[in-house]
Design a protein around this nucleic acid. Structure first.
Length: 501
RNA sequence: CGGGCUGUAGCUCAGCUUGGUAGAGCGCUGCGUUCGGGACGCAGAGGCCGAAGGUUCAAAUCCUUUCAGCCCGACCA
């Protein structure tokens, strides 16, 4: 007799959070390590979540006037050299292509053919500001060509030395928006608009509360004038940057010669922005909602809203139960949730019921329905919600179908409220360095600290010591006079500080 | 890129100190018993012990080199 562990995931969050995270990724069948160092294979269940994220965001981008396009994976090395800060930021983590042909080597293997060396090396894009900027410079001649609002769904490569599934991998999938505008004001408005889009997506679709804010000097995107981000708090109270929106000023326009003739006939530089979210959002999703039994998915992103598990012994029962399940599936699918048909999966695989049930628990499906001969006879279903745990309860079939959409809504809301409560619980205002150090002490749980500060080397040094980072200055924060806890200088706004991923 | 550790079955690992032609649990396949449940029994498939070289009658085991992974640090829009 095997021992029955109390939880499906070991270790639990409390025992070892980073290891728990890895185990959830594995148990929920989201992704696995690949044959290439630092890269992962995203498995169907994980990719389906990403597809849902993509679909939702893509709709929001289109609704705000953006169009999709696609730019090359390779970028001439010289392009990266054009913007000084940009080089500084990315040069250390670029994959470089130097040859275009292989040939047999003396040891029986292969090697890049010396005769096929590229005149100019290509880098695999770590982001596409430079090549898109170069393209924009050809597209833009007149103020009548502006604004240009482009988005691309793509993969990028950043040669990170230390990787974690979804949170930081060498290659990852993302979306990068790139826009060019005639005026400073318009570009700034675009930057803030997309920040709002991200925040709305995070809170309404991912059920993940976020803080919208501006980054400090140390955390700004290389080459940007201002970087904004949405910051979320994970269950271990560490902050995670979940999306960024950059106001690039005219920095890239000057580097890439993105010029146009304005209404008075003068040649002037355009104002550009860029903004992105990545598969890191899947990591954020995991660490925001999941529990010691595995993944917990917000209904709006779940690949399946409802999973139906038939239970039977004999062939007769099988026929009867399956027919009941098929019609249940059909009627559920006819229901609508979040403006789409309810997504239902009927799992009639021939494996043990208990094991099958736990697989779906670990995968985080919002509602699990078990149907056996007794339910068929009584016209009922046995339903359980993933967000509240427990075994579930018998419900009259038609009633279950009629309320499924409302139940999904309730689950979505419960997840958001729970995450918001956890964040509130971990949020403090701190006014002295002493208190700050205590809050972020070695064994302390930490959290989000709102403090007055003045950006500068003194702050950077203190933060580094404590392994704390300035996350952002909330954009909707109130003006308030105070003193920087690091330097004592006067400050008018509080910033958010936290340990971070 | 520095410091520490580990590479043996699909997975987690034992065996290595004291060299003698490879083990367990889980998973997988088949049969059976159970079953509103992550169950059990029996039978079976599966490994040239990360790679290369060396010592030896004999190497998973000792020596050298190399590659890969993990942890800690540095780095990280």
């Amino acid at each position: 007799m095997a021992k029955k562990p109390k939880n499906a995931i070991s270790p639990t969050r409390a025992e070892n959070y980073p290891e728990w995270y890895q185990q959830v990724v594995k148990a929920a069948d989201l992704a696995e390590p690949s044959d290439v160092r630092g890269c992962m294979v995203i498995k169907p269940w994980g990719y389906a979540i990403w597809e849902n994220i993509q679909r939702k965001l893509d709709t929001m981008f289109k609704a705000t006037g953006h169009e999709n396009a696609y730019f090359p994976l390779f970028i001439p090395m010289s392009f990266l050299e054009k913007e000084a800060e940009h080089v500084e930021g990315f040069a250390k983590e670029c994959a470089v292509v130097t040859h275009h042909r292989l040939e047999p080597d003396p040891d029986g293997g292969l090697r890049p053919a010396p005769s096929a060396k590229l005149e100019e090396p290509l880098i695999v894009r770590p982001t596409s500001e430079t090549i898109i900027g170069a393209t924009f410079s050809r597209w833009i001649e007149s103020y009548r060509d502006l604004p240009i609002l482009i988005n691309q769904w793509a993969n990028v490569v950043r040669w990170e030395l230390r990787t974690r599934m979804f949170l930081r991998t060498t290659e990852f999938l993302w979306q990068e928006g790139h826009t060019a505008h005639a005026t400073d004001t318009e570009a700034q408005a675009e930057t803030r608009l997309m920040l709002d889009v991200y925040a709305q997506f995070a809170e309404e679709t991912m059920a993940m509360p976020v803080i919208k804010g501006e980054k400090t000097d140390g955390e700004r995107f290389p080459g940007a004038v201002a970087t904004y981000s949405i910051e979320a708090m994970m269950q271990d109270r560490k902050a995670l940057q979940a999306g960024t929106s950059h106001f690039l000023g005219q920095n890239f326009a000057k580097a890439q010669e993105i010029k146009f003739q304005d209404q008075s006939g003068d040649q002037v530089y355009a104002w550009t922005t860029s903004w992105g979210v990545s598969t890191r959002l899947v990591g954020a999703l995991i660490m925001t909602h999941s529990d010691d039994d595995g993944l917990v998915l917000p209904p709006k992103l779940a690949p399946a809203h409802v999973v139906i598990l038939p239970i039977y012994k004999s062939d007769d029962e099988r026929t009867e139960v399956l027919a009941y399940c098929e019609s249940l599936k059909e009627e559920l699918t006819a229901q609508r949730y979040d403006e789409e048909p309810v997504r239902v999966r009927l799992d009639d695989r021939d494996i043990r019921g208990g094991e099958k049930k736990w697989q779906w628990v670990k995968r985080g499906v919002p509602i699990r329905v078990e149907v056996g001969p007794r339910d068929v006879a009584a016209g009922k279903v046995f339903a359980a919600r993933r967000d509240v745990g427990g075994k579930g309860e018998g419900v009259v079939r038609d009633e279950f179908i009629a309320t499924v959409s409302a139940t999904l809504d309730e689950i979505q809301k419960t997840l958001f409220d729970r995450a918001a409560a956890a964040r509130k619980e971990a949020t403090v205002r701190i006014d002295t360095l002493e208190e700050f150090k205590k809050f972020f002490a070695e064994k302390s749980p930490g959290g989000l600290a709102y403090c007055h500060f003045v950006d500068g080397p003194q702050m950077e040094a203190e933060l580094k010591e404590l392994k704390v980072t300035a996350r952002c200055v909330p954009v909707d924060g109130e003006e308030e006079n105070g003193k920087c806890i690091f330097s004592g200088k006067p400050s008018s706004r509080r910033g958010v500080f936290a340990r971070a991923y």
